[in-house]
């Protein structure tokens, strides 16, 4: 949590204004600001104020994971965080992981192994997989991947090809890292 942040609040002018805040986030490398109600969820801020609609809402009980983004380097559920809580942090969304239009290895693996069907849970799955592969440093097996996917629900794929894609991406990324190290 290295970011120093000074929150700018709208001038207090009665009840309504008191519930408004200016939220500043660094999203996918760009600093973005917007006004919103204090009660606005991060996911709605990202979708509606920033127009980044790749992050989805699939449930209302913090379970499905369609809303997963990375906040200050950790995967979080943006449906259960207020935008003001997140203000000052660095956020990466699904729109921000393909460098120069080149698919991230996780995205490529999902494509190659048919790890998506309707695509709705996919952004959360991909963000989760990127985080998972990063945290485990190459040491992933099927059981671990399945356990790590506990916070992401998919109704289309039966997870079979998602698990396959995550393991393949893990191999691709850590295989490449091993090669580079040699």
């Amino acid at each position: 949590m290295g970011t120093v942040f000074e929150e700018t609040r709208a001038p207090s002018m009665g009840q309504e204004e008191d519930n408004m805040a200016k939220v500043t986030l660094t999203v996918n490398g760009r600093t973005m600001s917007g006004e919103c109600d204090d009660r606005t969820l991060l996911v709605h801020f990202i979708r509606e104020k920033l127009g980044l609609t790749g992050t989805h809402v699939g449930c209302d009980t913090t379970q499905c994971g369609a809303c997963v983004v990375h906040m200050d380097g950790r995967s979080v559920k943006s449906c259960s965080i207020l935008a003001v809580q997140a203000s000052g942090s660095t956020v990466t969304t699904i729109e921000g992981i393909a460098a120069q239009g080149e698919l991230h290895p996780v995205q490529a693996a999902f494509n190659q192994h048919h790890g998506l069907q309707c695509g709705f849970c996919t952004p959360g799955m991909v963000m989760t997989a990127v985080d998972m592969i990063g945290r485990h440093g190459g040491a992933l097996d099927e059981a671990t991947v399945r356990h790590e996917l506990e916070g992401n629900i998919c109704r289309c794929t039966g997870y079979h090809n998602i698990v396959k894609a995550v393991l393949a991406a893990n191999e691709e990324m850590h295989g490449a890292a091993r090669q580079a190290a040699e």
């Binding site: 969304t93 698919l103 995205q107 190659q112 996919t122 952004p123």
Partner: peptide, 17 residues
């Protein structure tokens, strides 16, 4: 491999909401 995947994988799917 599916042609339509890229938009879903990059957050560019266009759903009703």
């Amino acid at each position: 491999a599916r042609k339509e995947d890229k938009r879903f994988l990059t957050g560019k799917g266009r759903y009703t909401d």
